[in-house]
Design a binder for these strands. Sequence first.
DNA 1: TATTGTTATACTCTATAACTATA
DNA 2: TATAGTTATAGAGTATAACAATA
Lengths: 144, 144
Amino acid sequence: MELEHSVGSDLAGQLRLSVVRLNRRLRSQRTDETVTLTQISALATLLRCGAMTPSELAASERVRPPSMTRVIASLEEEGLVSRRDHPTDGRQSIIELSPAGAELLAAEASAKERWLDKRLAELTDSERVTLARATEIIDRMAGT
Amino acid sequence: MELEHSVGSDLAGQLRLSVVRLNRRLRSQRTDETVTLTQISALATLLRCGAMTPSELAASERVRPPSMTRVIASLEEEGLVSRRDHPTDGRQSIIELSPAGAELLAAEASAKERWLDKRLAELTDSERVTLARATEIIDRMAGT
DNA sequence: TATTGTTATACTCTATAACTATA
DNA sequence: TATAGTTATAGAGTATAACAATA
């Protein structure tokens, strides 16, 4: 009983390792070269929530402002976001998804030749439903 | 219909972002200081599969040998694993979970004060079951 | 004086390439 | 010559601390 509990039902530990290892796989399998997962995540937030300031984007992505400064700089270089002045506050600026950024996100969503898509295609409908529900729960837990 | 499909059913994209963001949270919320998630993952593999060579451990963890060299070196420094000579091949060595490493894993599993445990405690039983099933599916997909 | 954002710097995690030791 | 492992080096991703500009 005690043993079973400590070995078999450590959901936090299991989930933690699963996430760490799948994250590793996702990053290593990525051969795209143009954008990183971190950049895609920021672009997806801009698509979902609309234009916002760097600080707001950092808060949405749960990273610190200096980290987001670097992500935004790389996205600007590649033309995937654009920056405009804040209408009333000279310190702030507004980061907006560019048409190229929106196109890239759409292409990502329809590119079905990637590693994860292939693995998902091998699952049953029921398993995919479970994963879809899990992503909702995870997003809620992570505050995204 | 088309819009709904492209926005609502990109399971790969949703899962990818959920994993990237939860991984970020897990690493940033970690205040332990003694071991990293990467180290815990390696220790957990040694517990589950038993002693093995550095190459085998790298393959199990799906990282390259030089990456595992560094993980093992840090675990050795902290006394969480021990190394012994391979009985027949002078090139190889055997990495084994030490009693301190096993203790640390047990302590991790029973430390219920951490961020993820608190988030999980706020969920319903049904949601936790969904996550438990999802971890199994993910582990199968990631080949672990 | 407080806030927004950036720059400087450092650490973790991971990779590839080159090297050493042994088979 | 091939294999196991390490060392050297680099890049992504993130952080804290210090600074600049504006409020």
